[in-house]
Design a protein around this nucleic acid. Structure first.
Length: 234
RNA sequence: AGCGGGUGUUGCCAGC
């Protein structure tokens, strides 16, 4: 029961997905947590077709997916950028009336924007009763990935205006957008604002900043930044 | 009432 799902989870996260599956197969009784742990393991390993198949199997045996099941299954849809499967999962979510759930909504936003369906993503976002940092960041990242940088930056402005603070992931997406648009000043502002927000920069932040400075011809500043970076060179 | 499964992470290049 509790122990079993933990072990499956552990195997799945330690790249022993086959061992996880063996244990899964041996079980006489499987509940949604066991299924979700197994689906999550497949999604983590990029075995997305297996994840989807297990989801369908789970529904077929009469188990009712919950928010966690949907979140993990949508992850596989995103990995594959499979709109067809994503829409099918969306239909199950609507049936269960879970579209307004924050985590499920966030996953739907990610799935739709990853599949290039910006309107559907926006629609889910707009319908969310409650939003969190991840909802906003998913929109920023989604538009940045779609190369709609101005919209990405606009979502960030709205996010700020509604009183939300960015976190390190938000800033990576912002810097990526600025880098693509060559917005040096704005990029520097976001990078500087990390100190104020007490966000620790990761390698990704530095990579974006070094490139942003470099492409603007500020080579010395780029080198300075490289030198104070707590990581190896790229 | 509680417990095991959970969503957002830059760019370029190479391989599959």
């Amino acid at each position: 029961e509790f122990v079993v799902s933990s072990i499956i989870d552990m195997y799945a996260k330690c790249q022993s997905i086959d061992d996880a599956r063996k244990m899964f197969e041996k079980l006489k009784v499987r509940d949604i947590v066991i299924f979700s742990a197994m689906i999550s393991g497949y999604a983590l390993q990029g075995l997305d077709q297996d994840a989807m198949q297990l989801f369908y199997e789970m529904v077929k045996v009469g188990l009712v997916p919950d928010t966690v099941t949907f979140v993990t299954t949508l992850k596989s849809c995103s990995n594959m950028a499979s709109l067809v499967e994503g829409k099918l999962i969306h239909a199950y979510i609507l049936e269960r009336r879970l579209e307004g759930n924050v985590q499920v909504g966030n996953s739907l936003i990610d799935m739709f924007t990853t599949c290039g369906c910006m309107e559907d993503g926006k629609c889910v976002f707009n319908k969310l009763q409650k939003r969190d940092t991840i909802s906003w960041t998913a929109m920023v990242t989604g538009y940045a990935q779609a190369k709609e940088y101005n919209l990405a930056l606009k979502y960030y402005q709205d996010m700020e205006q509604e009183g939300w603070k960015p976190d390190n992931v938000t800033v990576v997406s912002l810097l990526a957008a600025c880098r693509q648009e060559g917005l040096l000043v704005e990029g520097c502002q976001h990078f500087e604002s990390m100190k104020k927000e007490k966000i620790l920069p990761t390698e990704d932040h530095f990579n974006c900043m070094v490139d942003l400075l470099g492409q603007a011809g500020h080579l010395e500043e780029a080198v300075d930044l490289l030198q104070c970076m707590p990581f190896g060179f790229d």
